[in-house]
Design a protein around this nucleic acid. Structure first.
Lengths: 236, 236
DNA sequence: CTAACACGAATAATCGATTATTTTGCGGAT
DNA sequence: ATCCGCAAAATAATCGATTATTCGTGTTAG
């Protein structure tokens, strides 16, 4: 009796992922990267050909994206990238202003030494990452965006509640998507100082100051982006 | 040339729904109704046969459920109902205690006359619906559960922020799922009085009292269900 | 007797093709 | 010239079947 050598015991870890997961991840990144216009249709056939997979796989990935709020679905009319309005972006920002300060209080109250260390690490990484790539110019670098997200998330991770952190993740993703298409580009604000003050207040367990800085941080961002073009354009 | 009579111009609104949506809804209700054990596998083949649809449809519905947190997926191992632990249930309850009071403050601050009217209507409906069906005994009636959800949601709808309300919906659903399998049954607490006090404080625009009552409402529920059997069993 | 292995059955994931719906383009009537 | 209605094409939704992976079972080497 022949024992075949090509046993499926040892599998290549790189190819060891579901097709739909891979397509989902790639699509997610593409949308978040802004490679699609707001409202643009996501056509299964085109995507299937583009990614060399079947319709079912693409469809699965798209449904997953809908669940995440990164795509929308119109019955019998296919999938599309959501076209978030400025209004939507303000709503997301308000939701963050509503939820994150309370989470931060919990985190400051409960965070342990490991949390403190991770906050310092995340802040260091953020502070040492250049926000803009001079050559690319367009927008934040992906490295900075990720460091930014991780700093805010790490800060809140002290609360120790995965349900709340999941809520944060959702809001952050929605915000990234909406921010990309909002009317204004991000102004040159001193985000660096704000982040440092946030870190210091949190590690000093000064909840009042920390939440105040956080609210201001979130308010300034959205205000500068949408409702106060005067500040940016300096009219008259 | 023959013009076929069965033109698709006039469509029956009842059958005018995507198959996957219908299966998704039915599955969702079945799971929330507790027809599956925690951790039980959701087998596509079985469900496809049961609902008289193809695998792809069931699969789509299941992916959608995963996105909602009502099902989990293990790569190459299929779908299953999540087995929420008591710990998870406490985390969800804490998340609600964290988020909902702030939302309620917003609602009380912003709610208009229409909101007031809807709050009264929702409370009336809740108060006049019998929580338990004597014959069924097992659990809350679905009518009461829905009225309960709608009362809490209507109360928060005054905030006018769909993003926050979406967050509420998620937490509520997760809570319903987790509560069903938590160790304790719901004790005979005077939820009726709590709801009335909540309504009154909200309509009186008394944010402090309202949030206090809400926090207590949420705390008592989870405490009675999980961490304080003493209160229920009255030991010694 | 234990434990690892091979084999077969069950189930998950994927695919290619079919059916149903919407969109598009054309022709005719007002 | 514009609008309405009917095909034809495009695209979405669904299906049945194929391939890949895991799980259960019996067998055999140690």
């Amino acid at each position: 009796m022949v024992y075949h050598e090509g046993m499926t015991r040892t599998v290549d870890p790189s190819t060891k992922q579901m097709l739909s997961e891979r397509v989902h991840t790639r699509l997610r990144e593409a949308i978040l990267r802004g490679e699609y216009a707001p409202g643009e249709a996501l056509k299964p056939q085109q995507l299937a050909q583009q990614h060399q997979v079947s319709l079912a796989v693409v469809r699965e990935a798209l449904v997953l994206l809908v669940g995440e709020g990164i795509a929308v679905r119109l019955p019998n009319r296919g999938f599309a990238v959501p076209d978030f309005s400025d209004r939507r972006w303000q709503q997301i920002a308000e939701a963050r202003r509503t939820i994150e300060p309370v989470m931060l209080r919990l985190a400051i109250e409960r965070g342990d030494l490991d949390w403190e260390a991770r906050v310092r690490a995340a802040h260091h990484r953020l502070a040492r990452t250049r926000p803009y790539a001079p050559e690319e110019g367009e927008y934040y670098t992906s490295a900075w965006s990720e460091a930014h997200r991780l700093f805010h998330r790490t800060l809140l991770e002290g609360c120790g509640n995965p349900v709340l952190l999941d809520t944060f993740d959702r809001l952050w993703t929605a915000g990234e998507l909406a921010r990309r298409w909002s009317a204004q580009r991000t102004p040159d604000r001193d985000g660096v100082a704000e982040h440092r003050r946030l870190e210091e207040a949190a590690l000093a367990r000064d909840a009042d100051t920390a939440t105040e800085v956080l609210v201001q941080h979130l308010t300034l961002t959205v205000a500068a982006l949408t409702s106060a073009p005067d500040q940016v354009g300096r009219r008259s």
